[in-house]
């Protein structure tokens, strides 16, 4: 087994965790991980040896995710959002906090969710997040700040999410 293979292998659990949080669905998340690994092999020559392979891999995953997002899905996302808002008061109270968190996360704009997950889940520094996503650190900070506040309002109640939509 080559050293590169070994490093890739050790990255899989964290790639899967991030993908699961990013796209929600398990199969879609694992597909994203597989595409990322395949793309990584194709682009290995572009990886600067000694630099952070993890950030490089998450960058590849980010780009693939952006490509997928460009395919028309906006309408269905809006519909899902409406549907989950209607459905959630009826869900049993023991489904509770964590389920709500997942649903609230899925309602964040993708660019805010990505930043929040890289910070909270992958425990990246802001500079690492900036280089992974190819955006300035200032943008990372403003997305993080807005994402957290929006998540807090979403968790505090559905009324807040409706109000936010109107503002948007």
């Amino acid at each position: 087994m080559s050293a590169d293979s070994e490093t890739l292998l050790t990255c899989i659990p964290r790639l899967r965790r991030y993908a699961r949080a990013l796209v929600g669905d398990r199969t879609a998340a694992d597909d994203l991980v597989q595409d990322t690994l395949e793309r990584a092999w194709g682009k290995f020559s572009l990886w600067r040896r000694g630099s952070d392979m993890r950030a490089w891999l998450f960058g590849i995953m980010h780009n693939l995710h952006v490509d997928q997002r460009r395919k028309p899905r906006l309408d269905t996302q809006e519909l899902d959002e409406e549907a989950s808002e209607l459905a959630s008061p009826a869900s049993p109270p023991d489904a509770l906090a964590l389920r709500d968190l997942q649903s609230a996360l899925s309602q964040l704009p993708d660019e805010q969710r990505e930043v929040l997950l890289l910070v909270a889940l992958q425990e990246m520094s802001y500079e690492q997040v900036a280089s992974t996503l190819g955006i300035p650190v200032g943008t990372v900070m403003s997305r993080l700040s807005r994402g957290r506040e929006r998540l807090r309002l979403l968790m505090d109640g559905r009324a807040a999410s409706v109000a936010l939509k109107v503002v948007k």
Partner: peptide, 18 residues
């Protein structure tokens, strides 16, 4: 998710380039 067994498909994708 970190503790879930890695699916064989993903192991294969990491070991051998596509």
């Amino acid at each position: 998710v970190l503790d879930e067994p890695v699916p064989e498909q993903l192991r294969a994708a990491a070991l051998v380039p596509a």
